[in-house]
Each structure stands twice: as structure tokens, then as C-alpha cells.
Nucleic acid binder design. Structure first.
Length: 332
DNA sequence: AACTTCTTCAACCGCCAGTGC
DNA sequence: GGCACTGGCGGTTGAAGAAGT
């Protein structure tokens, strides 16, 4: 006699999220920060269960998510981490901060697993879920013991890494004292939603900004008339954009609309954004951060895996060519 | 052009761990 | 200690589009 599913209530909407819902969700989280999912549907009027809201945020709307094709390097990382950690997608995702566990899981199941099976059909004992050849005569017990230890260490490292990142996450949603100089957003006095402003730290919100820009673009193309929610409260961005929703040839592109919508109001944030854009790869930024955090705090030793992830391609090749046993020797 | 099969991925479901009372 | 509640995780599903026949 378990609890009824949280989504089993009448009136709870299921299925794909609409742009309107996304905007409401993002706006609410921008103002209150992620968390407290239970009260989110009530406070926003979203007809979604809390779990659905959290998933939508973490898998799609969260800042810093990169979408699109996985690079060869990401492929290799996933393959190797999967071999080390198994189907612990959240742990694997912690090494790929721009990718969600869901993305990685889907990518594994649709792409990499096939490669895996091809490799396996080449001849080994078919140890499910691992690229390592079982010709490395490990007994099942040995393997399980190693895996347990690995999981334990991964948990520890992940927990440390997350605790080090926490301030970044929450601080991304703090509200600057000063009023944005470039804000064209109409604030609302409504006690519920729609939102006031979207003042998300530019550097951390860049990717999500792009996500939602695309999202809004699609939305605008589908609906020539901007819904009231947005036209009245969010994308009514003064003279330059007030009609922006009805034409793709308009000067006010969705990106522009969202630029205003997000109202990057801190010069520091803009600078951070520019700086971050100078980086050729956002993953480098996160890895730098992670490495810095780890090294600075001396809390999590750099494992061979860490080193592999941080080091250059040549080192990766070296480690890739190693057997699992060799590569994990530093862990046990 | 019509139909079938395959692929992709967002979203859902059920379970579990942590927390507070 | 037991219970209720919440958040997180991993497995699975199903709709939509692509590719093949």
C-alpha cells in the first residue's frame, strides 16, 4: 500500500511542456531558486506535478545545458565512465556538467550501446554494460567488489563536487540590488504568476538562455499572435519589440526578445558572459572549475579518472588503450 | 504516394534514500 | 522506531520524425 503517484491526481497535466509552461517555470525558479518543488505548481498555477517540474528543469531548462551532438571526446568519456561506474548516469553526468543524466542515458541507449554490442559480438562473455573485455579473467566476486568500491568512491567524489558547486547554483539566482539599466521588462504586481523579471546570472544561464530562445522562436513561429502572458508581461519589451512575435523578419528576434527578457543587468554578469564565450569549450570551463575546486580544497584526491578527464587528449588516448583493470588500479 | 519499420529523446513511473516530526 | 513527505535516480515508454520498401 504505497503512496499514490504524485501525478495521479485529477487535473494534473501530462505530456510535452508548452513554451508558456516553460517560461512560467523558469521565471518562478529564477525568482525563488530551484527546489521546493512541492509548492511550485501551486504557486505558479502550473497544472503539473512537482516531479514533472523538477524534471523539466533539470533535464531541459537548467542553465548550462548543452544540446546537440555529442563530441568524440564526450563519447569517449561516457564510454569509459560507463565502464567504470556502470549505469550510474547521474555520476557520469557529474563529469559532463553540460549534459544531463537523461541525455547521457538516452545517448548511451541509442548510440553507444550499439557500439558496445558490436564490440561484444567480437567475442567476449557478454558482461552487460561494460566495454571492458571479460578476457580479463576477473571472477564475478572480484568484479562486484571493485564495482562497489568504485561506486562508493564515485559517490564521495560526486557529493564533494556537488557541495563545492552549490554556492554557484544558488547564487545564480540571487537578485542584484541595482535595478537593471537595460531592462525593458514590464513587471507585474500579480501575486501569482506570470513573473516579474528574469535576472539570471548571465554566465551560468547562457546555455539555457539559448535553449529558451530557440524555444521561444519555435513558439513565435507557431503562434503569430503572442499569448497574453508573454505579450503583457514578459516579451513586451518596449518599442523595439512590442510587435516582435508576429514576424520572423522583424528586427526583434526571439534572441533579442529574450535578451531583454532575461535582463542581464549586472555589468559583471555581462563581462562573465563575454569571458565565458571566449572559451572555446564550455566543458573546459566546468572542468577547470572542478579541478580548481578539487585542488584548492584538497578534499577529493585527483584519481586517475580525474586526471584523465582533465588532461589532454594524448593522455586520454593512453588511458583508453589501457585495460579497465589498469585504468582503475588507482581507485582500489 | 502510401505504408512500414526504425530511431530518437522528452517525459513518465516506480523505487529508494534522506529528512523531519 | 515509525511514518509521511520530498527529492533524486535509473528504467521504460510512446509520440514524432526519419528512413526504408
Amino acid at each position: 500500500m504505497g503512496r499514490p503517484p504524485c501525478c495521479g491526481k485529477n487535473g494534473i497535466k501530462k505530456g510535452p511542456w508548452t513554451p508558456e509552461e516553460d517560461i512560467i517555470l523558469v521565471s518562478y525558479i529564477q525568482e525563488h531558486g530551484p527546489g521546493n518543488w512541492r509548492s511550485l505548481p501551486t504557486n505558479t498555477g502550473l497544472m503539473r506535478c512537482s516531479k514533472s517540474c523538477r524534471l523539466r528543469w533539470t533535464n531541459y531548462l537548467r542553465p548550462g545545458i548543452k544540446r546537440g551532438n555529442f563530441t568524440d571526446h564526450e563519447d569517449k568519456m561516457i564510454i569509459h565512465l560507463q565502464a567504470l561506474l556502470g549505469n550510474r548516469w547521474a555520476a557520469i553526468a557529474s563529469y559532463l556538467p553540460q549534459r544531463t543524466d537523461n541525455d547521457i542515458k538516452n545517448y548511451w541507449n541509442t548510440h553507444l550501446k550499439k557500439k558496445h554490442n558490436k564490440v561484444q559480438s567480437g567475442g567476449d562473455d557478454g558482461q552487460e554494460g561494460h566495454f571492458c573485455s571479460s578476457s580479463q579473467s576477473q571472477t564475478k566476486g572480484q568484479w562486484e567488489r571493485r564495482l562497489q568500491t568504485d561506486i562508493k568512491m564515485a559517490k564521495q567524489a560526486l557529493s564533494e563536487a556537488l557541495s563545492l558547486h552549490k554556492p554557484t547554483t544558488s547564487s545564480s539566482f540571487t537578485f542584484p540590488e541595482t535595478k537593471p539599466s537595460n531592462s525593458h521588462i514590464h513587471t507585474t504586481t500579480s501575486s501569482t504568476y506570470p513573473p516579474k523579471q528574469l535576472n539570471i546570472n548571465a554566465s551560468s544561464y547562457a546555455s539555457s538562455y539559448e535553449n529558451i530562445s530557440k524555444l521561444l522562436e519555435t513558439w513565435m513561429m507557431k503562434s503569430p499572435k503572442t499569448p497574453n502572458l508573454v505579450s503583457n508581461n514578459m516579451v513586451t519589451t518596449g518599442s523595439s519589440c512590442s510587435e516582435g512575435a508576429n514576424s520572423t523578419t522583424d528586427q526583434c528576434t526571439p534572441d533579442h526578445a529574450f535578451d531583454s527578457l532575461l535582463s542581464f543587468n549586472s555589468s559583471k554578469s555581462v563581462e562573465e558572459l563575454n569571458n565565458s564565450k571566449l572559451r572555446t569549450n564550455e566543458a573546459d570551463f566546468f572542468q577547470d572549475q572542478r579541478k580548481t575546486n578539487i585542488e584548492t580544497h584538497h578534499q577529493v584526491p585527483l584519481t586517475l579518472v580525474d586526471n584523465w578527464l582533465f588532461d589532454d587528449e594524448e593522455c586520454h588516448e593512453d588511458l583508453m588503450n589501457m585495460s579497465l583493470e589498469e585504468s582503475t588500479s588507482g581507485l582500489f
